[in-house]
Simulated scan of single mutants.
Amino acid sequence: MTDTVLPEPTPEQAQLFARVRRLMLIAGLTTALAISAVLIAIGYRLFHEQGSAAATDFTAVLPKSAKIVATAATGDRLVVTLDVGGMTEIHTFDARTLKPVGRLRFSSEP
Rank of each mutant, 00 (worst) to 15 (best):
T74K: 06
Q13C: 03
D3H: 09
A60L: 14
L62C: 04
T31W: 02
R105Y: 07
V84C: 09
A60I: 15
Y44D: 13
L29A: 07
Y44R: 09
L98R: 06
P63Y: 10
G86P: 11
V61T: 14
A72C: 03
S107A: 11
F58Q: 11
L62F: 11
S36N: 15
P100A: 05
A73G: 02
V79N: 00
E49R: 15
V20W: 00
F58H: 12
E12L: 05
S107P: 00
D94E: 09
P7V: 07
D57V: 15
T30K: 03
L29R: 00
V61Y: 00
P9K: 04
P110K: 01
L78S: 10
P63D: 05
A32S: 13
E109S: 13
V79L: 11
E12K: 08
S52V: 10
R19W: 05
A72N: 12
D57Q: 11
P7H: 04
K67I: 02
I26G: 00
F47Y: 11
A18S: 10
Q13P: 08
A54D: 11
V5I: 13
T88Q: 09
F93R: 11
V79Y: 08
P100T: 09
V101R: 13
G43R: 08
H91P: 00
I40Y: 12
I35R: 05
L16G: 03
R77V: 11
A37H: 08
L78M: 15
V101F: 04
R45V: 12
P110W: 00
T59I: 15
L104R: 06
G86V: 05
G51A: 12
L6W: 05
V38M: 09
L39M: 13
T56N: 03
V61P: 04
V20H: 07
T4F: 14
D83Q: 04
A37V: 02
G102W: 01
A37C: 09
I35C: 07
A41V: 10
Q13R: 14
K67M: 06
I42Q: 13
A60H: 13
F106P: 01
P100V: 06
